[in-house]
């Protein structure tokens, strides 16, 4: 599962741009991950602030 720490996230949308299937969306001040997420972790990789984790 992809876990976004809302208390850390700076809602910049960098993660949205690298998702290969467009499953990540920035809604004003929070990130939503769609059900078809494949947990590839690209979004977590580029986060400037370390707010995203892939939980195994």
């Amino acid at each position: 599962m992809i876990s976004v720490n809302r208390y850390k996230c700076g809602y910049c949308g960098a993660c949205v741009s690298v998702c290969p299937i467009g499953a990540v969306e920035l809604i004003e001040t929070w990130i939503e991950i769609a059900d078809d997420c494949t947990e590839c972790g690209m979004c977590a990789g580029v986060c400037p602030i370390g707010a995203i984790e892939v939980l195994k």
């Binding site: 949308g13 960098a14 949205v16 741009s17 690298v18 998702c19 290969p20 467009g22 969306e25 920035l26 690209m42 990789g45 580029v46 986060c47 400037p48």
Partner: peptide
């Protein structure tokens, strides 16, 4: 902007590889 979805929805793949962005 960088989180663009409009292109994707209309069939233009705007996905960036991690090496193709500066964070």
């Amino acid at each position: 902007g960088i989180e663009s979805k409009i292109g994707r929805w209309a069939g233009i793949d705007t996905t960036l590889k991690p090496s193709e962005i500066e964070t």
